[in-house]
Design a protein around this nucleic acid. Structure first.
Length: 422
RNA sequence: CGGGGUGUGGUGUAACGGCUAACAUUCCUGUUUUGGGAACAGGCGACUCAGGGUUCGAAUCCCUGCACCCCGACCA
């Protein structure tokens, strides 16, 4: 678990839920996340992550981390402030070339900018550590805040000017070695999307490549709120981005002409960089025969905060959010209804017992709040399991457990509950 | 960056160029209530985005700026 605390009393939580969303938010993800107190808007495309939202973000981050570690990625963390000189060497500093920089100046003189991506500084770092073919291949990644001066921020946390991104970079001897790793990343990405609950809607999508490869690959999640248009071949389970949807490409991929147009959210992007950066910045290695060659690179991005928004867009219902178990801020939302008899006491006992067992639980211990409001809050916050302690449940012999995805719950004994959440 | 729209208590809305800017919700006090956003009573809270102008009089009309939303373009 990413957090040392696995419990929270709702009466102590400083955030509150709201019936109405602010008028200046149209997107479903921002509306629900703000109503639930997960995030707070600072400016267009700039959001704070409040306790509940941060827990979700960290859970997603942890899943991504596990999958990156599984394919051998080594985590590091690079700065936001960028050295202009490096970017000039790759011709990506000039506003004419890259138009979404946030640039500023040092008091001591000289320019700097806030990182939009990290190929340049990372390649520079590696030139200090990579000398021999024996040092390759390897890959590194980070979770880092990216800054992009978007012409138009939109769609809540899905297209921000400041956002959390996981960027992975691979360093290989040659293209073949690169492709081997590239395929591993594809699989790791599939695992990630499946674990965070959007796998069934997410497709590998062919998109425009670069000088070193015909295509790059995106992972696109079907959603009417997406910015991209893709053509999905249901049978093959792959898609083509509109930007490269041409007869040539279709022929290339060798699949029948049976596509359906969809809007989709780009949740991941992987591509072959080749030697573009290694050549420009002098990252090369000595081969087996005393020769020298530039390192062959790839880069692989996932917008962690965008994933959070995507989950809300794709999985919520008219009552609120439905968090998949692995990303939910808590596993159990415990509600005590009324303060008569020993309801309060029993609820507290159950809370302590769940916490003791290491189960993440948000306890709605608020007094003077009606049952209806607690239920509405539970639906809005979208925690997977709702457990109700009330006079009625106690009379029926225990605690009512209901999944967020189901209409009805059932009353279970303490033993059964422990069995369920083991 | 082109086009369209909007700025009014914390939030959501209302108010003909004319009374002390209204209603709901939130919040606070009290009583009651506790299985689907409860009831009653009382109360706090707004220089109507900023600056200028027109007018006897501006939330309302005009100008400038700023902010935000939407469509499009852009998106290493």
């Amino acid at each position: 678990m990413p957090f040392s605390t696995n419990r929270m009393l709702q009466s102590k939580l400083f955030t509150k839920t709201r019936k109405e969303a602010p008028a200046d938010e149209q997107s479903k993800n921002a509306e629900l996340l703000i109503r639930g107190g997960f995030i707070h808007k600072e400016m267009a495309g700039v959001y704070s992550y409040l306790p509940l939202g941060l827990r979700v973000l960290k859970n997603i981050e942890e899943i991504v981390r596990e999958e990156m570690t599984a394919i051998g990625g080594q985590e590091l963390l690079m700065p936001a402030l960028q050295d202009k000189v490096l970017w000039e060497r790759t011709d990506r500093w000039d506003d004419e070339k890259v138009d979404n920089w946030f640039k500023t100046k040092f008091k001591s003189g000289g320019d700097t900018g806030l990182g939009i991506t990290h190929e340049e500084p990372l390649t520079q770092v590696m030139s200090e550590y990579v000398q021999s073919y024996k040092d390759l291949p390897f890959s590194v990644y980070q979770f880092q805040t990216k800054f992009r001066n978007e012409m138009r921020a939109k769609s809540g946390i899905m297209r921000g000017r400041e956002f959390l991104m996981k960027d992975l970079y691979s360093f290989s001897r040659d293209e073949n070695e690169h492709i081997e790793f590239y395929e591993k990343v594809k699989q790791a990405y599939k695992n990630i999307f499946s674990r965070i609950g959007i796998g069934h809607l997410t497709y590998l999508t062919f998109a425009s490549g670069g000088i070193f490869s015909k295509f790059s690959h995106e992972f696109q999640t079907l959603s009417s709120s997406g910015e991209d248009t893709i053509y999905l071949h249901e049978k093959e389970g792959i898609a083509i981005n509109k930007e490269v949807f041409t007869p040539d490409v279709k022929k290339d991929l060798g699949i029948s002409d049976d596509f359906t147009e969809y809007r989709a959210i780009e949740v991941g992007n992987i591509f072959t960089l080749g030697t573009r950066f290694s050549e420009a910045l002098g990252l090369s290695y000595k081969d087996e025969k005393d020769g020298s060659a530039p390192v062959f690179m790839g880069s692989y991005g996932i917008g962690v905060s965008r994933l959070m928004g995507t989950i809300v867009e794709v999985l919520s219902d008219d009552k609120g959010i439905i968090w998949p178990e692995e990303v939910a801020p808590f596993r159990v939302h415990l509600l005590s209804l009324g303060a008569k008899n020993d309801v309060t006491e029993k609820a507290r006992e159950l809370y302590d017992a769940l916490v003791e067992k290491g189960i993440d639980v948000l306890f709605d211990d608020r007094e003077d709040i009606g049952a209806g409001e607690k239920f509405a809050d539970a639906d809005l916050l979208g925690i997977p399991y709702r457990v109700v302690v009330s006079e009625r449940s106690l009379k029926d012999g225990g605690y009512e457990v209901k999944k967020r995805t189901e209409e009805k719950g059932e009353v279970l004994s303490l033993e059964k509950i422990f069995e369920m959440f083991r």
